[in-house]
Amino acid sequence: MADEIDREKQRIRGLVRERRAATTEVERAEIRDGITAQLITLVTGRGARSVSCYMPVAGEPDTSAFLAWTREQGIDVLLPAAREDGLLDWIRPSWEGNVRGAFGIPEPLGECLSPLAVGDVDLMLVPACAVDRSGVRLGWGRGFFDRNLGSMDQSPPVFAIVHDEEVFETLPSELHDIPVTGIVTPTRIEYVRTER
Rank of each mutant, 00 (worst) to 15 (best):
T23E: 13
C129T: 07
G143C: 04
L109G: 00
E60M: 04
F66W: 03
A117V: 03
L15D: 06
R19Y: 06
R17M: 07
T70C: 04
D85E: 05
N148Y: 01
Y191N: 04
C53K: 09
A65P: 06
V77P: 14
D85R: 04
E107Y: 02
E27T: 15
P186E: 07
F144A: 03
I178Y: 06
L15K: 06
G14P: 12
T181G: 03
E166M: 03
R147H: 05
S52H: 13
S134F: 01
T36F: 09
G110A: 12
T23M: 14
R32L: 12
F159H: 11
G47S: 07
G135M: 00
V162F: 04
K9R: 13
V136T: 02
R147C: 05
I161D: 08
R193V: 00
R7Q: 13
V26Q: 13
I105F: 10
W95Y: 08
A68F: 15
W95I: 04
M152L: 12
R83F: 11
F159P: 04
R46G: 12
C53V: 09
T63R: 07
E60K: 01
T181S: 10
T41Y: 02
L125G: 01
L109R: 02
D3C: 06
F66C: 07
T187A: 11
D146P: 15
